Computed example of a mutant assay.
Amino acid sequence: MLVGLDFDNTIVCYDRLFHRLAVEQGLVPVSLPATKGAVRDHIRAIGREPEWTAMQGVGYGPRISDAEPFPGVKEFLRACRAAGVDVAIVSHKTKHPYLGPAYDLHAAAHTFLTTHGFYDTADTGLSPERVNLELTKQAKLDRIGALGCDVFVDDLPEFLGEPSFPAKPRKLLFDPADANADRSDYTRVTSWAAVTSFVLGGEVSRWAA
């Protein structure tokens, strides 16, 4: 079995980082809830969209290691390794930000994975060769198909609903904020413990049957 994982907002939790960056720049009050969505909505509401776009370049670039892995994701990787289940990361990520300095966002992603111990292969089973950072959404879709993923985990329902999404993978919507509706074309999970249960608890086999 091969499980494909999205990267941003699926493996990496940016909530506290973006709140910190926005407070540092005086764009939000400290009292604002420390979620990426709340920060984005507040900055847009005060008409500072360019600052939000530039902040994403910083958050996904030189400050990315200040973000955090979602609770349970490394435990999921360890459990997959122990069970002989292969895992690959497949992400749509531009090489440089849309606005601001030309940070290397691909190098930053690898820095995050290194800093947070994801490349301790004996522990997680993950290595840089298993990380696919694609420049376009279509390239991400094509990579999922080319790898032959049996399951794919992503935080965006619109991506999982793409007409050209490969037919083979079972789709898991990672929804830790419990903010999306259930749909017939994916299974919604709100934690990495739930992903682990689905993948390693036999649910994939029952679904396939």
Rank of each mutant, 00 (worst) to 15 (best):
T124Q: 04
F76M: 08
N132E: 09
F118C: 03
A79D: 08
L200G: 08
Q25P: 00
A107M: 10
L5N: 05
G26E: 04
G37P: 01
Y14G: 02
I43R: 02
S205F: 04
K137A: 13
I144Q: 01
A67H: 02
V195T: 10
P71S: 07
M55G: 03
P169R: 13
L113D: 01
D6E: 11
L141T: 02
D66F: 05
T124F: 04
H19T: 06
F70T: 01
G4T: 09
G72Q: 01
H110P: 06
H92E: 12
A179Y: 04
P128Q: 06
H110T: 06
S191K: 06
L17E: 08
G47M: 11
L2C: 09
C80N: 03
A139G: 11
R81H: 13
V23C: 13
H110N: 06
K93Y: 10
F165L: 07
D150W: 01
A193F: 05
R183Q: 11
D120I: 03
R63E: 13
P29L: 09
S184T: 10
V87P: 10
F76T: 03
P169M: 12
G201Y: 05
P169Q: 12
A167E: 13
L126R: 04
E203K: 13
E75K: 03
G148F: 02
F152S: 00
A209E: 15
G57D: 08
V131H: 11
G59I: 04
S65W: 00
P71D: 12
V90Y: 07
V131Q: 08
T115V: 11
Y14H: 14
L133F: 15
M55S: 04
D15F: 06
F76K: 03
G57P: 12
V23D: 10
R78K: 14
Q56I: 14
I144R: 01
S65P: 00
D185P: 00
Y103W: 15
Y14T: 03
W207D: 10
W192D: 10
C80G: 06
E158K: 12
E158Y: 09
H106F: 06
I64T: 03
G72C: 01
V39K: 00
H110S: 05
A109Q: 04
Y119S: 10
E75S: 07
D15Y: 07
V131N: 10
V85T: 15
V28P: 00
L21F: 07
F70R: 01
V73N: 01
S205D: 15
K171W: 03
G125P: 11
G59Q: 06
R170M: 13
F159W: 08
D6W: 10
E203Q: 14
